[in-house]
């Protein structure tokens, strides 16, 4: 399903296609017209994709076909061995993780997992974890520490699941514990925000030495819709909230909430997932190389200082 703001592009593409078809079947020379339209298409793309609003980026971050954690694991890593369960209550399909190789490096991977179709999305609860999901994540962090392997996390969740069962099982408690557990890692930790970075449910696996973000992903304390529902009393004002929340990659880089932006193919990662995943892989390898020089204690201190420094206030 095309995104609303992309419709002029798709319409133009369709017209070019039709014209080419006509030229082929009738033998009429339409090359000049086609070239003209193609030039116009290039300009239109530049105009739209080159000036994406925060709300348009939020839509790209949610676009079907955008690479998920498992897609990245499949294409950028080798020999992924998925591990299941929290050893206490259940296995949460909204968080996946396990052991993998990144080029020559043994790593532990954990990430939110959205479904790639409606059926899978229901099973994975749209990437909204329950407490058992975060307990599984903590297990994997333990594993990374125990064997000295880097921890790589992929963030893509609208938020931790807000439901009765999640509250009964201590959603707030496990998120706090997961933040603490990840903060205490003595191995390199890299987080990549792939799509949506929704609040504490995202941060729970985001306490990394370096936080990277895909160009059109978002990360904030609340979704634009929920923010609009509270502050504007109308969820339809989400585009305004997206603007106000400064949730885009560029804004977050300026605030030092993220350390680097990973470029996406024109029109978003879903237009060319392989290219996007390759970019993620290259960024991970670069960042890992940088962190490998640090001792376990230095890695902990580096992470501590990174988060200790965030915030804006006035001494008085």
């Amino acid at each position: 399903m095309p995104l609303e703001f992309e419709k002029p592009i798709l319409e133009l593409e369709k017209r070019i296609q039709e014209l080419k078809e006509t030229a082929r079947t009738t033998g009429v020379d339409l090359e000049a017209e086609i070239r003209l339209l193609e030039e116009r298409l290039a300009r239109l793309k530049q105009e739209i994709y080159g000036h994406l609003t925060p709300w348009q980026r939020v839509q790209l971050a949610r676009a079907p076909g955008r690479p998920t954690t498992l897609d990245v694991l499949e294409k950028a890593f080798r020999d992924f061995l998925e591990l299941h369960g929290d050893r206490a209550f259940a296995d949460d399909p909204a968080i996946v993780g396990g052991l993998a190789y990144l080029e020559g490096e043994k790593v532990v991977v954990v990430g939110h997992q959205k479904g790639r179709d409606t059926k899978e999305n229901l099973r994975r609860n749209f990437g909204m974890p329950h407490p058992e999901g975060y307990r599984k994540a903590m297990r994997l962090m333990d594993l990374a520490d125990r064997f000295g392997y880097p921890l790589i996390s992929f963030i893509d969740t609208p938020g931790a699941y807000p439901g009765v069962s999640a509250e009964e099982r201590g959603q707030a408690w496990v998120i706090a514990q997961s933040i603490q557990r990840m903060g205490r890692l003595k191995v390199p930790a890299i987080a990549v925000i792939l799509g949506e970075g929704g609040s504490g449910g995202a941060l729970a696996i985001g306490v990394a030495n370096r936080v990277l973000i895909l160009e059109n992903a978002w990360y904030s304390v609340i979704s634009p819709e929920s923010c609009a529902a509270i502050l504007w009393r109308d969820a339809k004002e989400a585009p305004k909230a997206a603007e106000a929340l400064k949730l885009t990659a560029q804004d977050l880089l300026a605030l030092k909430v993220v350390d680097a932006i990973i470029p996406e193919p024109e029109g978003g990662a879903h237009k060319d997932p392989d290219r996007a995943i390759q970019n993620v892989k290259e960024a991970l390898l670069r960042t890992l190389e940088e962190l490998k020089a640090l001792s376990p204690e230095a890695l902990y201190q580096d992470r501590y200082r990174r988060f200790r420094a965030l915030g804006a206030y006035a001494e008085s």
Partner: peptide, 22 residues
């Protein structure tokens, strides 16, 4: 909860406060 008007910076206070407890 976290203050919406400071958005991601508010979110980061969760990590900051938790880590300081060490």
């Amino acid at each position: 909860g976290a203050r919406m008007q400071e958005a991601a910076l508010s979110l980061m206070q969760m990590a900051k406060t938790v880590m300081s407890l060490d």
